[in-house]
């Protein structure tokens, strides 16, 4: 029997698997004695393998119905997700700095701490986005010289 699953459903199930994994890790950190490590490893392995098969199933289902409109939907969704993800992450991280870091104690610890690391990664995302824009602009003729102005 051939199992068919839409790509959206596969994404949603994978998101729930990720939530369960977070729950297992949370439990393991809290429990902190055997067999927490073994259970976590097993849960992570099962989760990753299941997620891989679900994504593959979703991809195969969509391949039959993949065309230019689906590509447009995917690229617009991806760009909008990136924009919202960036704004939310930046806001939450800045909020975390104000909430948890004691600036009067040692500013260097704050600058090189994990929150600042994540903020720098977000800046990296913008640079990566610009790099891809340059690459695709070049690929699709954005930097070609005008023959009439030569």
């Amino acid at each position: 029997m051939k199992i068919r699953i839409s790509r959206n459903i596969s994404y949603i199930i994978v998101a729930f698997i990720a939530l369960i994994e977070i729950g297992v890790i949370w439990w393991a950190a809290d429990y902190n004695r055997p067999p927490a490590m073994e259970v976590t490893s097993l849960a992570l392995t099962i989760g990753i393998v299941t997620a891989y098969f679900l994504m593959d199933l979703g991809r195969k289902t969509e391949l039959g119905g993949r065309d230019e409109r689906v590509e447009l939907v995917n690229s617009k969704s991806a760009l909008r997700t990136l924009q919202i993800f960036w704004i939310m992450s930046f806001s939450i991280l800045l909020g975390s700095i104000v909430r948890f870091i004691d600036f009067s104690r040692d500013i260097r610890r704050a600058i090189f701490g994990p929150i600042f690391g994540q903020l720098i990664m977000l800046v990296g995302v913008i640079l990566l986005f610009v790099a891809f824009r340059i690459y695709y602009n070049n690929k699709y003729g954005g930097y070609d010289t005008d023959e009439e102005s030569d």
Partner: peptide, 19 residues
């Protein structure tokens, strides 16, 4: 045409301009 039925539907309804 090698596209999905939804694409034909979207074009007919004017919701999507084809390439």
């Amino acid at each position: 045409l090698g596209v999905t039925r939804q694409t034909i539907l979207a074009i007919e309804k004017g919701k999507y301009d084809p390439s």
